[in-house]
Design a protein around this nucleic acid. Structure first.
Lengths: 343, 343
DNA sequence: TGTTAGCACTCCTGACAAACGAGTGCTAAA
DNA sequence: TTTAGCACTCGTTTGTCAGGAGTGCTAACA
């Protein structure tokens, strides 16, 4: 659909704009190395590209700026993967070199290095709690009527939840309950817990534990975990380095978005597979209509369990971000698989 | 030192400036209700107040703006406590009406309501982990070489830490250790744990537990907890509503400060007692040299365990903030004392 | 037929001046 | 001691103008 020359020019314009943040004129492109055409020729092509919707003109006598469609085409067809710089590579490898034993720590470090290397905001989504497998459960009474349920997963994650104890329950009963649970439910993924309890444990409990109905009810609660702390956000202020975000109102909208974990989860947790780039309004959120988001899932043993992502201006260094993101997601996947995949 | 009239005028100027964010002229004050003097008189007084250092003039033909010294005097001498509005009072009471059983939740809610009611950023410092008393300790092995130590406190807080197990330790030994600890150390404040272990437990351990030296060493680690998650920050973006923070560079510095929990802790964790106001440069941090911080401690059973604070522009509604902060800190103290004070 | 030089045109930007007005300090009179 | 009056200051707004970056179009060239 686009001629080779148009692709070349579009690519040059976007490269230039990403670098300068200023509308790009025909002369600038004409003078670029490897472009053997006069500014007039470029001008004609630019007019065509604008007509086709790949470029926009802020005003008559300004240069051109890529449109969403332009970026889309650039990302889908024109980008070539960029090698990660020695320095960045070194820093990234550093993260994976440390022996990290808790999954959360690994994810957190990933988020940090990602933001540090790209100079954009990183958002990383940890695995849904439900995917973890039970390692140990414990119920610690705090008072007559309350207790904390503690769930340790095979990933080293510790989740806790406050419970209301059934009236008049005896501590011994709780202990019995916990013993049964630990004996029967180790290595069961959390999402199966409820089901397994009713199928396999209920019978046994009825025999051994008083007030087992109430206890069961209480337990269900403790398996409902917060989604909120799955999100790791790093470098939130980085967007303020961008010249197109010198406006406090824009920044405010974005920072307010960052305060809402549920929104961030929605933003990353897309059904699609593989590396994804969402440009400008494609995100659907008004606050980030001038931002792009690049995401890619990471895996344990072939199963996608979370998402790493970068949020930056639409005028983002897509080639670098994509390379780094891809590399990091692979590294993280390998590491987590080695550490946590069921043997 | 200042005449009554000067105090009145200073107060009027600051009130006005807080409300309008614009330099205040003599005419404006002269026209205020209850001020029976002409603008010329006010002008003379203003010149005096400027000479004394309470006011500043952005430029010759502008009105006056309070200096740090001016605010200081205002806060220390001129403010009268303002009644909290019905609506705010209702909202605040709502928070304490909910039965909140985890201390952290209570503190978090306090931070939220504080920011919501004042429209400034709230920063709340939870109790040092060391102040909590041990309710239960548990060590859950994750693998041959690693385990998670879990500490539950009487406040319902659950802290966990990854441990490296001594080589070749037997699970039974760990169990023995945990049993001894739970038998001996319940209700001991965390800061005493180390000491008590060496004094009281070491002997018993030597008798019953193999590799007790290594185990002890490992344990010490688990009593070192993160300070970072003591801080609750709410309404970070509120500062961007202020006209004097329409500048992205200022905002960026502040938001970057907000990302550093250790700095926030340092900011709140002052040795002084009671309600404190630090104005502008008094905070010592460049990022918030145009901000003020109002803090006050809260208590359990008469002992200060944390700090609630508000960060806003120097041009802050001190009277309202002070009233609300005081009220909330009292409420929180009462609530926590009822809930968690050792009987 | 594709390319390019040339040129008129558009429109943003920055500089400068003028008008405006908010506020001041000072003086003199009440 | 207070205040009316007034000249003065200085930041802000408005308007004008020149400069320049960039465009689209046309005509000539290879």
């Amino acid at each position: 659909m686009l001629t080779d020359r148009q692709r070349m020019i579009l690519s040059a314009i976007i490269d230039n704009y990403i670098q300068s943040a200023e509308p790009v004129g025909s002369r600038t492109i004409s003078k670029r190395e490897g472009v053997g055409f006069s500014s007039a020729t470029i001008r004609n092509e630019m007019a065509d590209l604008e007509e086709l919707g790949y470029l926009e003109q802020p005003h008559t006598s300004a240069g051109r700026v890529p449109s969403t469609k332009g970026y889309r085409f650039y990302v889908d067809n024109l980008i070539q993967p960029r090698n990660i710089s020695e320095k960045d590579l070194f820093n990234i490898k550093q993260v994976f070199a440390d022996r990290i034993s808790k999954m959360e720590q690994a994810i957190e470090s990933t988020a940090s290095i990602l933001s540090q290397v790209t100079n954009y905001t990183s958002i990383v989504l940890g695995p849904e709690m439900f995917e973890h497998r039970l390692k140990h459960i414990q119920i610690v009474p705090l008072s007559e009527s309350q207790a904390v349920a503690i769930i340790v997963t095979h990933t080293g994650r510790v989740e806790n939840k406050l419970l209301d104890l059934p009236v008049g329950v005896h501590p011994g009963e709780i202990e019995k309950l916990v013993n049964i649970l630990n004996a029967k439910l180790v290595d069961v993924p959390l999402w199966q817990l409820r089901q397994r309890i009713y199928q396999e444990i209920a019978g046994e409990m009825r025999r051994h534990v008083e007030q087992y109905e109430e206890m069961l009810h209480m337990l269900e609660n403790s398996f409902m975990t917060e989604e909120a702390d799955r999100v790791f956000l790093r470098g939130a202020t980085k967007i303020m380095n961008q010249p197109e975000f010198r406006d406090v109102d824009k920044v405010k909208d974005i920072m307010e978005l960052f305060e809402q974990n549920d929104q961030l989860i929605r933003l990353l947790d897309s059904p699609a597979e593989g590396l994804q780039v969402r440009i400008g309004q494609e995100n659907g959120l008004d606050a980030i209509k001038e931002c792009s988001i690049v995401t890619t899932p990471y895996y344990i043993g072939g199963k996608a369990i979370g998402v790493v992502g970068i949020l930056g201006p639409t005028r983002m260094e897509y080639d670098k971000v994509i390379s780094v993101l891809d590399y990091l997601a692979r590294g993280l996947s390998t590491m987590l698989t080695n550490q946590f995949d069921k043997k």
